[in-house]
Design a protein around this nucleic acid. Structure first.
Lengths: 115, 115
DNA sequence: CTCGTATATTGATGAAGGTCAATGTGGAGG
DNA sequence: CCTCCACATTGACCTTCATCAATATACGAG
């Protein structure tokens, strides 16, 4: 009864054809999902922290403290960013490493300039 | 008890210096305001309609019908977009004309690529 | 001044979202 | 097998938000 598999399709599309006309209700609904994932300060900071890390990936335990949030809350936010197609999750042993999906931020930016 | 004057400062900044480090809580809070304004499907469509209009501006009455929303709801969304620095409002006579703030979408996109 | 029109504001309502405490899961070590 | 650790999930609470009906405001026409 959750939305674990809901991946924003806009970020998977190879590119963004110029819309020519206005957004349809469906297009708007799906693009809004990406910006909804970006509309929380703590999620923006999570993206920032992951991107700033030298290794390019961070585990939950590294992100909990600087955000001053509980571990379940951080996991929740990370899941939203993964579902939006912005972060990638790789589990190694007990740890879960999160990394930026290459080009995802640029594609999200393209959703704006290509409105 | 409202936020009529809350203008997102990020969109007014002349440019976006490379962050070097990670986002502060305050930076994240203000940038999230812009994406929160973009996180609603109907607001994305409003931006799209305004941009697609040949004259570059649209009045509320032109936007109410294609969105299939009530007039107060459309006014509410437009206000949020104005407060976020994305739309500009100009009142002429009885009508209120909304237009895209030049470069605002590009600056919002820059908030992402410059994370 | 009065009426009609276009827009903004207020108040209420139901849905969605962020957070935490508690619990579940699954791998590593003894 | 048992225990600790990192992380995920669940359930509950409270806040925020999108929407509408009703009302207010402001302007133009007559």
């Amino acid at each position: 009864m959750n939305s674990s598999q809901a991946v924003a399709p806009e970020l998977d599309a190879s590119c963004c054809p110029p819309p020519a006309a206005a957004l349809s209700a469906e297009d708007a609904r799906q693009k809004a999902l990406v910006f909804k994932a970006l509309s929380d300060p703590n999620r923006l900071r999570l993206l920032s922290f992951v991107k700033a890390d030298e290794s390019g990936e961070s585990c939950v335990c590294d992100l909990t403290e600087p955000l001053d949030l509980g571990q379940p809350t951080v996991s929740h936010h990370l899941k939203i960013l993964v579902d939006a197609g912005l972060l990638h999750r790789q589990k190694r042993g007990t740890w879960a490493y999160y990394s930026l999906v290459p080009g995802a931020l640029e594609r999200a930016a393209g959703l704006l300039t290509g409105l």
